[in-house]
Design a protein around this nucleic acid. Structure first.
Lengths: 212, 212
DNA sequence: ACCTGAACACCGTTCAAGT
DNA sequence: ACCTGAACACCGTTCAAGT
Protein backbone atom coordinates (compact mmCIF):
# COMPACT_ATOMS: atom_id res chain seq x y z
CA UNK A 1 0.00 0.00 0.00
CA UNK A 2 2.70 2.44 1.05
CA UNK A 3 4.89 1.05 -1.68
CA UNK A 4 2.12 1.80 -4.15
CA UNK A 5 1.93 5.48 -3.21
CA UNK A 6 5.71 5.80 -3.28
CA UNK A 7 5.95 4.19 -6.71
CA UNK A 8 3.15 6.35 -8.11
CA UNK A 9 4.75 9.49 -6.70
CA UNK A 10 8.16 8.65 -8.07
CA UNK A 11 7.28 7.50 -11.52
CA UNK A 12 3.65 8.28 -12.29
CA UNK A 13 0.59 6.23 -13.14
CA UNK A 14 2.14 4.56 -16.18
CA UNK A 15 4.96 3.13 -14.09
CA UNK A 16 2.65 1.35 -11.67
CA UNK A 17 2.61 -2.20 -12.98
CA UNK A 18 2.24 -5.33 -10.90
CA UNK A 19 5.65 -6.40 -12.10
CA UNK A 20 7.30 -3.14 -11.03
CA UNK A 21 5.52 -3.15 -7.70
CA UNK A 22 6.41 -6.78 -7.02
CA UNK A 23 10.05 -6.09 -7.87
CA UNK A 24 10.11 -3.12 -5.48
CA UNK A 25 8.57 -5.16 -2.68
CA UNK A 26 10.90 -8.05 -3.41
CA UNK A 27 8.15 -10.56 -4.13
CA UNK A 28 6.31 -12.30 -6.94
CA UNK A 29 3.65 -10.73 -9.10
CA UNK A 30 0.94 -13.04 -7.86
CA UNK A 31 1.33 -12.29 -4.17
CA UNK A 32 -0.23 -8.83 -4.57
CA UNK A 33 -3.50 -10.56 -5.38
CA UNK A 34 -3.56 -11.98 -1.88
CA UNK A 35 -4.15 -8.47 -0.54
CA UNK A 36 -6.07 -6.87 -3.35
CA UNK A 37 -8.54 -8.13 -5.93
CA UNK A 38 -7.51 -6.02 -8.90
CA UNK A 39 -5.39 -3.11 -10.00
CA UNK A 40 -8.35 -0.75 -9.69
CA UNK A 41 -8.78 -1.72 -6.08
CA UNK A 42 -5.07 -1.28 -5.43
CA UNK A 43 -4.92 2.25 -6.80
CA UNK A 44 -8.30 3.11 -5.33
CA UNK A 45 -7.04 2.23 -1.89
CA UNK A 46 -3.85 4.21 -2.44
CA UNK A 47 -5.87 7.21 -3.58
CA UNK A 48 -8.16 7.01 -0.57
CA UNK A 49 -5.17 6.78 1.71
CA UNK A 50 -3.74 10.02 0.34
CA UNK A 51 -7.13 11.68 0.57
CA UNK A 52 -7.24 10.79 4.26
CA UNK A 53 -3.92 12.54 4.84
CA UNK A 54 -5.11 15.64 3.02
CA UNK A 55 -8.31 15.81 5.01
CA UNK A 56 -6.50 15.24 8.29
CA UNK A 57 -4.09 18.07 7.54
CA UNK A 58 -6.90 20.59 7.11
CA UNK A 59 -8.59 21.98 10.21
CA UNK A 60 -11.94 23.72 9.96
CA UNK A 61 -12.52 26.15 12.84
CA UNK A 62 -16.02 26.05 14.29
CA UNK A 63 -16.14 29.82 14.44
CA UNK A 64 -15.11 30.30 10.81
CA UNK A 65 -17.59 30.91 8.01
CA UNK A 66 -18.82 27.50 6.78
CA UNK A 67 -18.40 28.38 3.11
CA UNK A 68 -14.85 29.55 3.80
CA UNK A 69 -14.23 26.18 5.42
CA UNK A 70 -15.58 24.37 2.38
CA UNK A 71 -13.29 26.50 0.23
CA UNK A 72 -10.27 25.58 2.35
CA UNK A 73 -11.04 21.88 2.01
CA UNK A 74 -11.59 22.17 -1.73
CA UNK A 75 -8.30 24.00 -2.25
CA UNK A 76 -6.44 21.40 -0.19
CA UNK A 77 -7.80 18.58 -2.36
CA UNK A 78 -6.99 20.55 -5.50
CA UNK A 79 -3.41 21.05 -4.38
CA UNK A 80 -3.03 17.38 -3.55
CA UNK A 81 -4.21 16.34 -7.01
CA UNK A 82 -2.09 19.00 -8.69
CA UNK A 83 0.95 17.67 -6.86
CA UNK A 84 0.18 14.00 -7.46
CA UNK A 85 -0.98 13.85 -11.04
CA UNK A 86 -2.10 10.22 -10.74
CA UNK A 87 -4.61 10.97 -8.00
CA UNK A 88 -7.46 12.65 -9.85
CA UNK A 89 -8.27 9.87 -12.26
CA UNK A 90 -8.77 7.40 -9.45
CA UNK A 91 -10.80 9.65 -7.22
CA UNK A 92 -13.30 9.83 -10.05
CA UNK A 93 -13.81 6.08 -9.97
CA UNK A 94 -16.00 5.64 -6.96
CA UNK A 95 -15.82 8.63 -4.71
CA UNK A 96 -18.27 8.01 -1.92
CA UNK A 97 -17.59 4.32 -1.45
CA UNK A 98 -14.12 4.47 0.09
CA UNK A 99 -13.88 5.39 3.78
CA UNK A 100 -11.87 8.59 3.50
CA UNK A 101 -13.78 9.94 0.55
CA UNK A 102 -17.00 9.29 2.44
CA UNK A 103 -15.56 11.11 5.42
CA UNK A 104 -14.58 14.06 3.24
CA UNK A 105 -18.02 14.17 1.67
CA UNK A 106 -19.51 14.21 5.13
CA UNK A 107 -17.13 16.85 6.36
CA UNK A 108 -18.14 19.25 3.61
CA UNK A 109 -21.76 18.43 4.28
CA UNK A 110 -21.38 19.20 7.97
CA UNK A 111 -20.30 22.71 7.12
CA UNK A 112 -23.41 23.17 5.01
CA UNK A 113 -25.56 21.87 7.83
CA UNK A 114 -24.75 25.17 9.50
CA UNK A 115 -26.49 27.05 6.69
CA UNK A 116 -30.25 27.48 6.21
CA UNK A 117 -30.69 25.11 3.28
CA UNK A 118 -33.02 22.24 2.52
CA UNK A 119 -31.66 18.70 2.59
CA UNK A 120 -31.92 18.59 -1.17
CA UNK A 121 -30.02 21.86 -1.57
CA UNK A 122 -27.27 20.56 0.67
CA UNK A 123 -27.08 17.33 -1.26
CA UNK A 124 -26.83 19.22 -4.54
CA UNK A 125 -24.27 21.68 -3.22
CA UNK A 126 -21.91 19.09 -1.74
CA UNK A 127 -22.10 17.01 -4.90
CA UNK A 128 -21.41 20.08 -7.02
CA UNK A 129 -18.36 21.06 -4.98
CA UNK A 130 -16.94 17.53 -4.96
CA UNK A 131 -17.73 17.16 -8.64
CA UNK A 132 -16.05 20.43 -9.51
CA UNK A 133 -12.98 19.75 -7.41
CA UNK A 134 -12.40 16.18 -8.53
CA UNK A 135 -13.45 16.72 -12.13
CA UNK A 136 -11.50 19.88 -12.79
CA UNK A 137 -8.46 18.67 -10.89
CA UNK A 138 -8.52 15.41 -12.80
CA UNK A 139 -8.29 17.33 -16.04
CA UNK A 140 -4.83 18.30 -14.88
CA UNK A 141 -3.82 14.63 -14.94
CA UNK A 142 -4.11 14.61 -18.66
CA UNK A 143 -2.73 17.64 -20.43
CA UNK A 144 0.68 19.02 -19.61
CA UNK A 145 2.12 19.77 -16.20
CA UNK A 146 0.95 22.97 -14.54
CA UNK A 147 2.12 25.94 -16.54
CA UNK A 148 3.62 27.48 -13.45
CA UNK A 149 5.75 24.41 -12.73
CA UNK A 150 7.17 23.80 -16.17
CA UNK A 151 10.81 24.26 -16.89
CA UNK A 152 11.45 27.37 -18.96
CA UNK A 153 12.07 25.61 -22.25
CA UNK A 154 9.17 23.24 -21.68
CA UNK A 155 6.78 26.10 -21.01
CA UNK A 156 8.02 27.92 -24.06
CA UNK A 157 7.37 24.86 -26.23
CA UNK A 158 3.87 24.46 -24.82
CA UNK A 159 2.97 28.10 -25.29
CA UNK A 160 4.39 27.97 -28.77
CA UNK A 161 2.08 25.07 -29.60
CA UNK A 162 -0.81 27.00 -28.09
CA UNK A 163 -0.01 30.17 -29.99
CA UNK A 164 0.25 28.40 -33.31
CA UNK A 165 -3.02 26.57 -32.63
CA UNK A 166 -5.06 29.40 -31.20
CA UNK A 167 -3.62 32.20 -33.29
CA UNK A 168 -4.08 30.21 -36.47
CA UNK A 169 -7.84 30.49 -36.14
CA UNK A 170 -9.63 33.38 -37.78
CA UNK A 171 -10.43 36.12 -35.24
CA UNK A 172 -13.59 36.81 -37.21
CA UNK A 173 -14.97 33.34 -36.53
CA UNK A 174 -13.35 32.96 -33.09
CA UNK A 175 -13.57 36.41 -31.51
CA UNK A 176 -13.42 35.12 -27.95
CA UNK A 177 -10.29 33.05 -28.48
CA UNK A 178 -8.67 36.18 -29.87
CA UNK A 179 -9.70 38.10 -26.76
CA UNK A 180 -8.34 35.62 -24.22
CA UNK A 181 -5.25 34.11 -25.84
CA UNK A 182 -2.97 36.46 -23.96
CA UNK A 183 -4.84 35.86 -20.72
CA UNK A 184 -4.43 32.12 -21.20
CA UNK A 185 -0.71 32.39 -21.71
CA UNK A 186 -0.31 34.26 -18.45
CA UNK A 187 -2.62 32.23 -16.24
CA UNK A 188 -1.75 29.98 -13.32
CA UNK A 189 -3.77 26.77 -13.11
CA UNK A 190 -4.44 27.31 -9.43
CA UNK A 191 -5.95 30.76 -10.00
CA UNK A 192 -8.19 29.36 -12.68
CA UNK A 193 -9.39 26.61 -10.36
CA UNK A 194 -9.97 29.05 -7.51
CA UNK A 195 -11.90 31.51 -9.69
CA UNK A 196 -14.35 28.84 -10.81
CA UNK A 197 -14.72 27.53 -7.27
CA UNK A 198 -15.51 31.04 -6.07
CA UNK A 199 -18.26 31.42 -8.66
CA UNK A 200 -19.80 28.18 -7.42
CA UNK A 201 -19.52 29.23 -3.78
CA UNK A 202 -20.97 32.67 -4.57
CA UNK A 203 -24.01 30.93 -5.98
CA UNK A 204 -24.22 28.85 -2.84
CA UNK A 205 -23.96 31.86 -0.52
CA UNK A 206 -26.71 33.56 -2.46
CA UNK A 207 -28.94 30.52 -2.11
CA UNK A 208 -28.32 30.42 1.65
CA UNK A 209 -28.96 34.11 2.17
CA UNK A 210 -32.15 33.98 0.12
CA UNK A 211 -33.55 31.45 2.58
CA UNK A 212 -33.09 33.64 5.62
CA UNK B 1 -13.46 7.70 -38.18
CA UNK B 2 -17.17 7.01 -38.52
CA UNK B 3 -16.42 3.37 -37.85
CA UNK B 4 -14.71 4.43 -34.64
CA UNK B 5 -17.75 6.29 -33.32
CA UNK B 6 -20.05 3.42 -34.29
CA UNK B 7 -17.86 0.86 -32.56
CA UNK B 8 -17.55 2.98 -29.43
CA UNK B 9 -21.30 3.53 -29.31
CA UNK B 10 -22.10 -0.11 -29.78
CA UNK B 11 -19.63 -1.69 -27.43
CA UNK B 12 -18.00 0.97 -25.27
CA UNK B 13 -14.46 2.20 -24.74
CA UNK B 14 -13.05 -1.18 -23.76
CA UNK B 15 -14.15 -2.72 -27.05
CA UNK B 16 -12.27 -0.19 -29.18
CA UNK B 17 -9.09 -2.04 -30.08
CA UNK B 18 -7.13 -1.68 -33.27
CA UNK B 19 -7.80 -5.32 -34.00
CA UNK B 20 -11.56 -4.94 -33.58
CA UNK B 21 -11.62 -1.75 -35.63
CA UNK B 22 -9.53 -3.27 -38.41
CA UNK B 23 -11.79 -6.33 -38.51
CA UNK B 24 -14.87 -4.11 -38.79
CA UNK B 25 -13.33 -2.06 -41.57
CA UNK B 26 -12.14 -5.22 -43.31
CA UNK B 27 -8.47 -4.29 -43.25
CA UNK B 28 -5.22 -4.96 -41.44
CA UNK B 29 -4.30 -3.53 -38.05
CA UNK B 30 -1.42 -1.55 -39.43
CA UNK B 31 -3.38 0.38 -42.01
CA UNK B 32 -5.08 2.51 -39.35
CA UNK B 33 -1.70 4.06 -38.64
CA UNK B 34 -1.66 5.53 -42.09
CA UNK B 35 -4.48 7.86 -41.05
CA UNK B 36 -3.78 8.37 -37.38
CA UNK B 37 -0.63 8.46 -35.28
CA UNK B 38 -1.88 6.75 -32.14
CA UNK B 39 -4.94 5.46 -30.37
CA UNK B 40 -5.23 8.69 -28.40
CA UNK B 41 -5.39 10.67 -31.62
CA UNK B 42 -7.98 8.29 -33.06
CA UNK B 43 -10.35 8.60 -30.12
CA UNK B 44 -9.61 12.30 -29.73
CA UNK B 45 -10.73 12.90 -33.29
CA UNK B 46 -13.83 10.77 -32.80
CA UNK B 47 -14.69 12.72 -29.65
CA UNK B 48 -14.22 16.05 -31.39
CA UNK B 49 -16.41 14.89 -34.24
CA UNK B 50 -19.28 14.10 -31.86
CA UNK B 51 -18.77 17.40 -30.08
CA UNK B 52 -19.18 19.19 -33.39
CA UNK B 53 -22.54 17.52 -33.95
CA UNK B 54 -23.72 18.46 -30.48
CA UNK B 55 -22.71 22.07 -30.93
CA UNK B 56 -24.31 22.28 -34.36
CA UNK B 57 -27.60 20.93 -33.00
CA UNK B 58 -27.85 23.71 -30.43
CA UNK B 59 -28.99 27.13 -31.55
CA UNK B 60 -28.40 30.17 -29.35
CA UNK B 61 -30.88 32.98 -30.09
CA UNK B 62 -29.34 36.44 -30.16
CA UNK B 63 -32.26 37.83 -28.20
CA UNK B 64 -32.03 35.22 -25.44
CA UNK B 65 -30.26 35.82 -22.16
CA UNK B 66 -26.57 35.01 -22.66
CA UNK B 67 -26.32 32.98 -19.45
CA UNK B 68 -29.38 30.98 -20.47
CA UNK B 69 -27.63 30.28 -23.76
CA UNK B 70 -24.51 29.09 -21.94
CA UNK B 71 -26.74 26.84 -19.85
CA UNK B 72 -28.36 25.34 -22.94
CA UNK B 73 -24.98 24.56 -24.44
CA UNK B 74 -23.71 23.05 -21.19
CA UNK B 75 -26.76 20.83 -20.84
CA UNK B 76 -26.41 19.64 -24.43
CA UNK B 77 -22.80 18.61 -23.84
CA UNK B 78 -23.78 16.91 -20.60
CA UNK B 79 -26.49 14.92 -22.31
CA UNK B 80 -24.12 13.85 -25.07
CA UNK B 81 -21.57 12.58 -22.56
CA UNK B 82 -24.27 10.90 -20.48
CA UNK B 83 -25.48 9.09 -23.57
CA UNK B 84 -22.02 8.16 -24.85
CA UNK B 85 -20.15 7.06 -21.79
CA UNK B 86 -16.82 6.92 -23.62
CA UNK B 87 -16.88 10.58 -24.57
CA UNK B 88 -16.03 12.35 -21.32
CA UNK B 89 -12.68 10.75 -20.69
CA UNK B 90 -11.38 11.85 -24.05
CA UNK B 91 -12.72 15.38 -23.94
CA UNK B 92 -10.58 15.83 -20.85
CA UNK B 93 -7.45 15.04 -22.78
CA UNK B 94 -6.84 18.22 -24.67
CA UNK B 95 -9.96 20.28 -24.85
CA UNK B 96 -9.02 23.48 -26.61
CA UNK B 97 -6.70 21.99 -29.19
CA UNK B 98 -9.20 20.19 -31.40
CA UNK B 99 -11.21 22.31 -33.85
CA UNK B 100 -14.70 21.66 -32.54
CA UNK B 101 -13.75 21.98 -28.89
CA UNK B 102 -12.09 25.28 -29.71
CA UNK B 103 -15.24 26.38 -31.50
CA UNK B 104 -17.37 25.40 -28.51
CA UNK B 105 -15.06 27.25 -26.14
CA UNK B 106 -15.37 30.29 -28.34
CA UNK B 107 -19.12 29.98 -28.63
CA UNK B 108 -19.55 30.05 -24.87
CA UNK B 109 -17.14 32.95 -24.69
CA UNK B 110 -19.11 34.92 -27.26
CA UNK B 111 -22.17 34.77 -25.04
CA UNK B 112 -20.13 36.18 -22.18
CA UNK B 113 -18.84 38.95 -24.38
CA UNK B 114 -22.37 40.30 -24.17
CA UNK B 115 -21.99 40.75 -20.40
CA UNK B 116 -20.10 43.54 -18.61
CA UNK B 117 -17.09 41.51 -17.46
CA UNK B 118 -13.35 41.98 -17.70
CA UNK B 119 -11.40 39.79 -20.09
CA UNK B 120 -9.97 37.91 -17.14
CA UNK B 121 -13.41 37.32 -15.66
CA UNK B 122 -14.63 35.98 -18.97
CA UNK B 123 -11.62 33.71 -19.29
CA UNK B 124 -12.17 32.36 -15.78
CA UNK B 125 -15.91 31.91 -16.29
CA UNK B 126 -15.66 30.03 -19.58
CA UNK B 127 -12.95 27.79 -18.20
CA UNK B 128 -15.03 27.10 -15.09
CA UNK B 129 -18.10 26.18 -17.11
CA UNK B 130 -16.16 23.93 -19.49
CA UNK B 131 -14.26 22.42 -16.57
CA UNK B 132 -17.46 21.72 -14.66
CA UNK B 133 -19.27 20.26 -17.65
CA UNK B 134 -16.48 18.03 -18.89
CA UNK B 135 -15.17 17.09 -15.45
CA UNK B 136 -18.48 16.25 -13.84
CA UNK B 137 -19.82 14.53 -16.94
CA UNK B 138 -16.66 12.46 -17.20
CA UNK B 139 -17.24 11.16 -13.71
CA UNK B 140 -20.27 9.42 -15.18
CA UNK B 141 -17.96 7.40 -17.43
CA UNK B 142 -16.61 5.58 -14.46
CA UNK B 143 -19.15 4.55 -11.89
CA UNK B 144 -22.36 2.83 -12.87
CA UNK B 145 -24.82 3.83 -15.58
CA UNK B 146 -27.16 6.67 -14.73
CA UNK B 147 -29.49 5.67 -11.96
CA UNK B 148 -32.46 6.71 -14.02
CA UNK B 149 -31.49 4.44 -16.91
CA UNK B 150 -30.72 1.27 -15.01
CA UNK B 151 -32.88 -1.78 -15.34
CA UNK B 152 -34.98 -2.36 -12.26
CA UNK B 153 -32.92 -5.21 -10.83
CA UNK B 154 -29.67 -3.45 -11.65
CA UNK B 155 -30.78 -0.29 -9.87
CA UNK B 156 -31.90 -2.30 -6.90
CA UNK B 157 -28.50 -3.99 -6.65
CA UNK B 158 -26.70 -0.64 -6.87
CA UNK B 159 -28.88 1.00 -4.25
CA UNK B 160 -28.47 -2.05 -2.04
CA UNK B 161 -24.69 -1.65 -2.24
CA UNK B 162 -25.07 2.03 -1.45
CA UNK B 163 -27.36 1.43 1.48
CA UNK B 164 -25.10 -1.16 3.03
CA UNK B 165 -22.08 1.10 2.53
CA UNK B 166 -23.60 4.40 3.60
CA UNK B 167 -25.89 3.07 6.28
CA UNK B 168 -23.10 1.05 7.84
CA UNK B 169 -21.34 4.23 8.92
CA UNK B 170 -22.06 5.66 12.33
CA UNK B 171 -24.56 8.55 12.09
CA UNK B 172 -22.74 10.16 15.00
CA UNK B 173 -19.50 10.47 13.01
CA UNK B 174 -21.19 10.95 9.62
CA UNK B 175 -24.24 13.11 10.33
CA UNK B 176 -24.45 14.49 6.82
CA UNK B 177 -24.41 11.10 5.12
CA UNK B 178 -27.26 10.12 7.40
CA UNK B 179 -29.18 13.22 6.33
CA UNK B 180 -28.81 12.75 2.58
CA UNK B 181 -28.83 8.98 2.05
CA UNK B 182 -32.49 8.99 1.14
CA UNK B 183 -32.01 12.01 -1.11
CA UNK B 184 -29.20 10.22 -2.92
CA UNK B 185 -31.28 7.14 -3.54
CA UNK B 186 -33.98 9.21 -5.21
CA UNK B 187 -31.84 11.55 -7.27
CA UNK B 188 -31.51 11.71 -11.04
CA UNK B 189 -27.96 12.34 -12.32
CA UNK B 190 -29.18 15.02 -14.68
CA UNK B 191 -30.85 17.01 -11.88
CA UNK B 192 -27.68 16.82 -9.84
CA UNK B 193 -25.64 18.11 -12.76
CA UNK B 194 -28.10 20.91 -13.48
CA UNK B 195 -28.25 22.02 -9.85
CA UNK B 196 -24.48 22.45 -9.64
CA UNK B 197 -24.38 24.22 -12.99
CA UNK B 198 -27.06 26.63 -11.78
CA UNK B 199 -25.02 27.48 -8.68
CA UNK B 200 -22.06 28.28 -10.92
CA UNK B 201 -24.18 30.38 -13.26
CA UNK B 202 -25.81 32.20 -10.33
CA UNK B 203 -22.34 33.23 -9.20
CA UNK B 204 -21.61 34.41 -12.72
CA UNK B 205 -24.81 36.44 -12.97
CA UNK B 206 -24.00 38.08 -9.67
CA UNK B 207 -20.54 39.02 -10.91
CA UNK B 208 -21.98 40.52 -14.06
CA UNK B 209 -24.67 42.50 -12.28
CA UNK B 210 -22.18 43.84 -9.75
CA UNK B 211 -20.23 45.42 -12.61
CA UNK B 212 -23.16 47.40 -13.93
C1' DA C 1 0.45 6.23 -51.98
C1' DC C 2 -1.67 2.97 -49.38
C1' DC C 3 -2.21 -1.48 -47.22
C1' DT C 4 -0.85 -6.10 -44.84
C1' DG C 5 -0.15 -8.98 -40.79
C1' DA C 6 3.52 -11.27 -38.32
C1' DA C 7 6.40 -9.83 -34.66
C1' DC C 8 7.69 -7.07 -30.57
C1' DA C 9 7.33 -5.44 -26.11
C1' DC C 10 4.54 -4.97 -23.08
C1' DC C 11 0.08 -5.45 -19.87
C1' DG C 12 -3.37 -7.56 -15.80
C1' DT C 13 -4.77 -11.84 -14.15
C1' DT C 14 -4.82 -16.86 -13.11
C1' DC C 15 -3.40 -20.98 -10.96
C1' DA C 16 -0.87 -25.21 -10.00
C1' DA C 17 2.70 -25.66 -7.10
C1' DG C 18 5.35 -24.63 -3.24
C1' DT C 19 6.37 -23.24 2.11
C1' DA D 1 -2.19 -18.77 5.53
C1' DC D 2 0.69 -16.81 2.41
C1' DC D 3 3.78 -16.67 -1.49
C1' DT D 4 5.87 -17.93 -6.27
C1' DG D 5 6.42 -17.23 -11.22
C1' DA D 6 5.39 -19.48 -15.54
C1' DA D 7 1.54 -19.24 -18.53
C1' DC D 8 -2.59 -17.11 -20.62
C1' DA D 9 -5.06 -13.86 -23.08
C1' DC D 10 -4.82 -9.90 -24.31
C1' DC D 11 -3.01 -4.86 -25.67
C1' DG D 12 -0.78 -0.69 -28.89
C1' DT D 13 2.78 -0.14 -32.04
C1' DT D 14 6.35 -1.17 -35.57
C1' DC D 15 8.05 -2.46 -39.95
C1' DA D 16 9.65 -5.26 -43.78
C1' DA D 17 7.12 -6.61 -47.42
C1' DG D 18 3.62 -6.24 -50.68
C1' DT D 19 0.30 -3.69 -54.45
Amino acid sequence: MLGTVALLDEAGADALTFRALAARLGGGVGSIYWYVGSKDELVGRAADHVLGEVSAATTLPDDADPVDNVRALAMAVYEAIARRRWLGAYLMQDFGFQPNSMALYDRIGQQLQRLPLTTRQRFHAVSAVIGYVVGVSAELDHGPAAIEEMADDEREAFLERLRTTWRAVDPATHPFLAEVTEEFEQHRDEDLFAAGLDLLLAGLRQQASAAE
